[in-house]
Design a protein around this nucleic acid. Structure first.
Lengths: 242, 242
DNA sequence: CGTAAGATTGACAAGCGTCAAATACAGTGG
DNA sequence: CCACTGTATTTGACGCTTGTCAATCTTACG
């Protein structure tokens, strides 16, 4: 079973030892049905999770029934990291499809920082990547029209799927309800629906099964207006592998 | 001159050696006037910066003149970290007031991960804190009214000022133009102005000099509706100090 | 076949943006 | 000390995007 090494290999090449050390973090995978809560916000002593298979979301619920989706998690993602510095979990982790999830040992994580500083630095870098993803979404939500936000989301998911599966085509799986898409983009389900219809009517995307087909990638990219962000692989300042 | 140790001491107690190692990262401080660009987005080989004195902002400009402020930086903040994994800087760093900034050596950062893994883990944790700040702002921008967004920003800045200066009172310095506040919150300058006036008319805040006075903290917190997030200090899983 | 969740559509309302003009303020040079 | 200039704030009128409410339709599934 391939583990989350995927995520790091975009940043740097790992030695076999480092890969082994990473794999050693993960516990026994647990199976969840769609819509299950893996970890509720507010829980004390937040843990780390690894998503082996399926989709999940990190979100928060608010009183008036409002909801914010912070992150759409794909296989290979480490989940729950934002809560680590806090006494109570910040985000609820929910499955969007049936999924397989294991817990990551924090003790082993601490050891990883000590014994494989290069991997520690890479963990730091992936956290920065996540910040940038949030910054992009913040721009989307704060400054863009619904058409632009939805376009950006489709492209973002497509790009991330391509990183996992290089065979990936122009079809973008999207096992979210329109309400969940709205909760990610700061829109209502109704308006997400209207927006998807417009993109469909204009022939920019096709809509079928549980996802969308990208028909005019250029138009979509022009709408989304989020720059490409080439990764600086194997930065020279990283500590040497042990 | 106290260095950014502040930021870490909220998470864990550092040894003298660790503090020294952190200080060793910083180069010679450079003085900037208000409104200066410290580092422009798009620049290659992004570096790290430390804000010694003054205020700064991390932001991005877009074609149509739109702008998004990602982060308001206060003294002690490390700036530019989100760009580290990328070839080109993601965010522009600008001074909001006259400011003193030094560059942080990336080589020394790499060494820090190797020689002080506990500090490396703390760097990882501060990155997660930053994610949560962005997540909170995303909620604000995506789901809240202008009154709520502005309230949340005032409280957030107040809280961060209190961390730096324990003498801090109910007055919140805010050396941003209303346009910059809008760029942080996904609002126009005009609407920020209207919103501030309403908060002032309702006696929730007072407005004077370059900032606001918090008059009814309870009302402000009720509006902002962002939970307190107590920090888990000195988590047991951190590697031992060296 | 029946039920529930989700998608879709329409009519209407509201919050925020846009445009434009007036006012206040800070810094500069005389 | 004052006039001058550019920047920032403030206010009003109006329009548009998105939200709200409600009804209907579709689909998945027991």
């Amino acid at each position: 079973m391939p583990l989350p090494v995927t995520r790091f290999s975009a940043l740097a090449d790992l030695t076999a030892t480092e890969k082994t050390a990473l794999q050693a973090l993960a516990g026994e995978p647990v199976e969840y049905p769609r819509g299950a809560t893996i970890r509720a916000a507010g829980k004390t002593h937040p843990a780390l999770y690894l998503l082996h298979r399926g989709w999940a979301a990190a979100l928060a619920d608010f009183q008036n029934g409002q909801r914010q989706v912070f992150k759409i998690h794909l296989p290979g993602d480490v989940m729950g990291a934002p809560s680590l510095p806090f006494e109570h979990a910040v985000e609820t982790l929910t499955t969007l499809t049936a999924a397989s999830v294991s817990q990551l040992s924090l003790t082993a994580l601490g050891r990883l920082f000590a014994e494989h500083p290069r991997v520690g630095a890479l963990l730091f870098l992936t956290a920065q990547e996540e910040r940038v993803i949030l910054m992009d979404r913040l721009t989307s939500v704060g400054r863009r029209s619904s058409l632009q936000r939805v376009s950006a989301l489709i492209l973002h998911v497509h790009e991330r799927l391509s990183l996992i599966d290089s065979e990936n085509t122009s079809f973008v799986e999207l096992p979210l309800t329109q309400e969940q898409v709205g909760d990610a983009l700061g829109l209502t389900a109704v308006h997400v629906n209207r927006t998807l219809r417009i993109l469909g009517d204009q022939g920019v995307i096709g809509r079928r099964d549980g996802g969308v087909e990208i028909l005019r990638a250029d138009a979509l990219r022009r709408l989304a207006d989020i720059p490409a962000r080439p990764i600086a692989r194997n930065p020279t300042w990283l500590p040497r592998s042990r």
